[in-house]
Computed example of a mutant assay.
Amino acid sequence: MNLLRHIRHSRTAALVGAVLLSCAALAACGGQHAEGTAGSAPTTSFTEQGVTVTLSVSDWHASQGTLTAVFTPERKGFHLYSTDLPADGVEGVGRPTAMAVTGSLKAGGRLAASAEVRPITVPGVETPVPVYPDGPVTTTLPVRADGNGDATVLIGYASCSTRDGCTIPVSDRPVHLHVTGDRATFDPH
């Protein structure tokens, strides 16, 4: 009996692992617009100023869910600035990694990032500038629907390299969604 239970548990664990691996592979592929399939989280992506941003909506229940944005610099050695950086940077240097919602979606909390902030010094700037380590950064924002209708996600960021300089900041780049009580889907346009 215990052996049978162990076999069932192993098969379930292997299936869950395969599903998670497939989802990670799909997310890594990116693309201009890649709407989720039935049962998966709606996803879309864009690339602007040297960074690919992949957005998804997950855990959508009772008009609430999580909006996730993965910011991936295209070039090695580039980092993103902290979500806590002031809007105008530090002494004019840098722009915060930002995600806000408007329309029928409201933020249900603060934007959180998966990476640890580290301070760097920039020539000509007295105050250390908070950045994430080079490479991709995942941010999450809890959201709730304020009724059915259209919503807009506004994305902002800047990437920089201590060797190659910075890209032009992206501010309030809109991504459109349609929200109903049982789902939030990205607009294909």
Rank of each mutant, 00 (worst) to 15 (best):
N2L: 13
L4R: 13
R11H: 13
A13W: 10
L15S: 14
L15D: 13
V16S: 05
A18C: 05
L20A: 15
L20G: 10
L21H: 11
S22M: 15
L26C: 12
A27Q: 13
G30L: 04
Q32Y: 11
A34C: 13
E35W: 14
G39P: 07
S40I: 03
T43V: 12
S45Y: 08
Q49Y: 07
Q49V: 03
G50M: 08
V51L: 00
V53T: 15
T54M: 10
S56E: 09
S56A: 08
V57G: 00
V57H: 01
W60I: 02
H61N: 09
H61A: 00
G65W: 01
T66P: 01
A69E: 01
A69I: 02
A69M: 04
E74R: 15
F78E: 10
L80Q: 05
T83D: 06
D84R: 13
D88K: 14
D88W: 02
G89K: 06
E91L: 02
E91N: 03
G92R: 13
V93T: 06
V93G: 01
P96Y: 10
A98Y: 12
A98H: 14
G103K: 09
K106R: 14
A107H: 06
G108Q: 05
R110D: 15
R110I: 03
A113V: 01
P119V: 05
G124L: 09
G124D: 01
T127S: 14
P128Y: 09
V129G: 08
P130S: 04
V131A: 04
V131F: 08
Y132L: 12
D134C: 06
T138C: 02
T139W: 00
T139Q: 01
T140L: 00
P142Q: 04
V143C: 01
G147Q: 12
N148C: 06
G149S: 02
D150N: 14
T152Y: 03
T152H: 09
V153I: 13
L154P: 00
G156H: 04
Y157P: 12
S159F: 01
S159T: 07
S159Y: 03
S161R: 12
D164G: 00
G165Y: 07
V170H: 04
P174H: 05
P174D: 03
T180H: 02
D182E: 10
H189E: 15
